[in-house]
Simulated scan of single mutants.
Amino acid sequence: MNDISLIETGLVFLKVKSDREITIDNVTTLQVKNNGLVSVFINELELQPNEHFTLAVPDGTITKVVLDIQFSQTDNGINEEFKKFSWHKKELDIIYRKLITCKN
């Protein structure tokens, strides 16, 4: 009989700078933070610049997370001096832990 070990990984950091859909299996906790200068919509939840939100709380459950990420197309409220730094306009950090199953 094979033993199966469950190993929780350390933190995983993803940096997203364009619209996309991301699927992550076996998530134990997941948080998103908008580090850009424009709003971002995650599954229709709007995050303003410098806002963060926990989408999967660390309550002992394991879930599959599908993130539909859409950045705002407007530059309202952005100073002219910051417009030249395009890499900071759209920047979302995704921080999560996931469970990995290993056979011994």
Rank of each mutant, 00 (worst) to 15 (best):
N2R: 04
D3Q: 15
I4V: 11
I4A: 08
S5D: 14
T9V: 03
T9Y: 01
T9W: 01
G10H: 01
V12T: 10
K17E: 15
D19G: 15
R20H: 13
E21M: 10
E21R: 10
I22L: 13
D25M: 03
D25F: 09
V27S: 04
T29Y: 02
L30F: 02
L30V: 04
Q31G: 11
N35M: 09
N35L: 11
L37H: 07
V40T: 03
V40E: 03
I42M: 01
I42V: 13
N43H: 01
N43I: 03
N43A: 02
E44R: 09
Q48V: 05
P49G: 07
E51S: 04
H52L: 12
F53R: 09
L55E: 03
A56L: 09
A56P: 00
A56N: 06
P58K: 04
P58I: 01
P58L: 04
G60Y: 03
G60F: 00
T61S: 11
T61Y: 01
I62A: 07
I62R: 07
T63E: 12
T63N: 09
K64D: 06
V66E: 11
V66D: 08
D68K: 14
D68L: 11
F71V: 03
Q73L: 11
Q73E: 14
T74A: 07
D75L: 05
N79G: 13
E81V: 12
E81C: 08
F82C: 09
K84N: 12
F85I: 10
W87K: 08
H88R: 10
K90Y: 04
K90G: 07
E91W: 00
E91K: 05
E91C: 07
E91F: 00
D93V: 08
D93M: 08
D93C: 04
D93R: 04
Y96D: 06
R97A: 04
R97H: 13
R97S: 07
K98I: 12
K98F: 09
L99S: 06
L99W: 00
I100F: 02
I100K: 10
T101P: 08
T101Y: 12
K103Y: 07
K103N: 11
